[in-house]
Amino acid sequence: MLKFIVKRLFAMIPVVLAVTFVVFTIMWFVPGDPTNIILGNEWTEAASARVKAELGLDRSFLVQFFHYTANLVQGDFGISYITRAPVGEQLLARFPNTLEVVLGAMLFCVVVGVPIGVYSGVKPYSVFSNLTMVAGLLGISFPIFWLGLLLILLFSVHLGWLPSSGLEDGFASFILPCLALGGNYMANIMRITRSSMLEVIRQDYIRTAKAKGVKAVDVVIKHALQNSMMPTITVIGMDIGTLLGGVVLTETVFSIPGTGRLLLESINKRDTPTVIGCLVIMAVCIAISNLIVDIVYAYVDPRIKAQYGAGKD
């Protein structure tokens, strides 16, 4: 198992490099001269050339990419064109906020979505089950910004219960962003858990468990749950990417100083180093969450664990 994890960690390196390359290339082809933004009103031919030389922008694409990656490997994300501060510092300051919003949304969705999915899968003909399906359908159809605005209108403007922006109020300030961000995610978790539970509950081994005299509750908890979790875990892991994408909107709607908003701002300002930095961080997050999903698989299903042990991926 340990060998598997180490192997997977090493396998992440080329993935992250590939992402860096793609992002780097895209930013390279973005039209416009970055020195325009950096120098603003003070732009002159000479100043532009000087700044380019200073930032290494006068060199060829490959050389620039090579330099960037060489620095990146040492944890150096470069210098922001706008603030002239190291990108790494900005990321370090902003990323925890994003992580809190994403993990908060995830936790909320799992804690609420899984039990609802399980229940409505076990009792597929109940009114509750049908209600959750309607809610789920609405959940996946709501765009984040709209859901976010609705939540702000209701809980901040009308009821005045929760803050509508910033993070100054601690836990309370995370509630609405997590709800808005998690709407889709939770609906997905709910639907997939339900259909997987529907499938598992009519398997032969469930009948075997009942025939042994296992109590109805334990049939679900001890026998059905673990077997039904694979698709749910897959969705929880796979949708991290969607969550990280959604966080850009969420942080914007709720004015949260996180990497999502930083990314959006940097794109608007053509701040290439910051854009690349944000995206690389997100790529690393996705790669790590995929690894975590694979590890969790092994604990849920002994067949997969055996495969990892045997060294076959």
Binding site: D204, Y205, R207, A211, H223, Q226, N227, D301
Partner: peptide, 14 residues
């Protein structure tokens, strides 16, 4: 007690 027809599916895989 009951013995079922298909042993491949009668046991809980996990």
């Amino acid at each position: 007690a009951m013995i079922f027809q298909d042993p491949m599916t009668s046991l809980n895989p996990v």
